[in-house]
Structure formats: C-alpha cells, structure tokens
Computed example of a mutant assay.
Amino acid sequence: MEKGACHPYRGTWPEIADDVFLAPGSQVIGDVKIGARSSIWFNCVLRGDVNHIRIGQRTNLQDGTVVHVNGGGSPTVIGDDVLVGHKVMLHGCELQDRSFVGMNSIILDGCVVESGGMVAAGAFVTPNKIVRKGELWAGWPAKCLREITDGDRKLMARGAPHYAELAAEYRSLQN
C-alpha cells in the first residue's frame, strides 16, 4: 500500500512522527506537525501554508477531511486523542484534547472545541464560537443542543484507541 504525500511550502516540510499512518491520497503541505500514533485517512488535505497546523498524539482525521489555516492569525491546532469524522472542514480553529467532531461538519476561524466537547455530524460552527466541555453542538448554524450523555462519553473514549489500532494495522500494510 502506498503512503500519503508530503510537500514543502516555501522550504518548510511537514514534521510527522515515525508511526503516523498517512493513507494513500492524503496530502500534507508546509508547516504541519503530526504527533505519534495519529492517523490521516484517505484523501485528507492538510495545508499549512499561510499559518501552521499542529496535531497531537493518537488523533485521527477521517477520510476526505480538509484542514487549513487563517493567514490573519488563526492556525489550526488539534490536541491529543481527538476524533474527526469523514469529510470535515477545519479552518483556523482549535480542537482540544479528547474532543469529537462528527462527519461532514464545518468549524471556522477562531472556534474552540474544548476538551470533552462534541460537535454533531453535519454541524456548521460559525466563527469564534466556543463548544464547552460537556456540550453537544448541532445544527446549521450550530448551537448548544444539550449536555453530552454517558453514552456519548463512552463513544468518545473508545474512538481514539480504536483508530490508533486500526491505523497501526493499515501502516503495517505499507511496509
């Protein structure tokens, strides 16, 4: 299995831990750092050109996700053990440790999803919003729908270890 591609921008190459899984079709450009045991799945694009992107450990960005930055001051920073669903758009925002973003969501400049915060599938989080710890945001535009449940917490706790194991299996196919 082939690996994803890394590209420099203005002489700056991505820095990727040795055990990261970069799926075929993924593109990582410029000032991007990705921590240990994280996974960047099929056809993701991470473009750190006009600002930087930082991704922690055991975080996964699922298929078709796009990560970009705001050149006016907002990098994109994603913590440890973060779950990001399929076809998510992240732009100049912060996802703190153990947060969750459901598939096909959009999170814009200046937004923060706090540790333990959850964004539902298909949500549109407009600029400068804060998804607080323990909140589930949903809708278009997104707003706080409810407090997360014990079931939500269990889902979030299982996700990062599951994807780290799955990524290790896929990575073994690349060698």
Rank of each mutant, 00 (worst) to 15 (best):
D150G: 14
D80R: 04
D152T: 02
M156T: 11
D97E: 13
M103D: 05
C111D: 06
F100C: 10
I148D: 01
G122A: 11
D80G: 06
E94R: 14
L95T: 03
V113P: 02
R153A: 14
H91A: 09
K133M: 13
L155C: 11
D152A: 04
G92N: 02
A138K: 09
D81R: 09
V82N: 02
G79Q: 10
L90T: 07
L90P: 05
G122P: 10
P141F: 12
T126K: 11
G151L: 09
C111F: 07
I148F: 02
I107V: 15
G122S: 11
F100D: 02
I107S: 06
M156C: 13
D109N: 14
S115L: 12
K154F: 12
A142W: 05
R132K: 15
V84R: 04
C93Q: 04
K143I: 00
E135S: 09
S99M: 07
I130D: 10
K154L: 15
V84F: 05
G102M: 08
D80T: 09
D81F: 02
G116S: 08
V84L: 09
E114M: 12
S105M: 09
R158A: 14
G110P: 09
L90V: 08
G92D: 02
K87H: 15
G159V: 03
A138S: 15
L155T: 14
L145N: 13
V84K: 02
V88W: 00
K133I: 00
A123H: 01
G110H: 07
R132L: 10
D152R: 03
C93D: 06
A138F: 02
H91R: 08
D109H: 08
S115C: 12
C144F: 07
A138I: 01
R132N: 12
L95E: 00
N128V: 00
M89V: 14
S105R: 04
G85E: 05
A157M: 04
K143G: 09
L136A: 05
G110K: 03
V101D: 02
R146S: 13
G122I: 06
R153S: 11
G159T: 00
R146E: 12
V101K: 01
G159Q: 05
I106N: 14
V88A: 01
G117H: 00
D150Y: 06
L108D: 07
A142G: 11
P127R: 01
K143R: 15
G116T: 10
K129Y: 10
C144I: 13
L155D: 03
A157H: 08
G159C: 10
M118V: 06
G102E: 06
V88H: 05
T149I: 07
M156N: 07
S105T: 09
D109P: 08
H86R: 05
A123F: 07
K154S: 15
A157N: 13
A121K: 04
G102S: 09
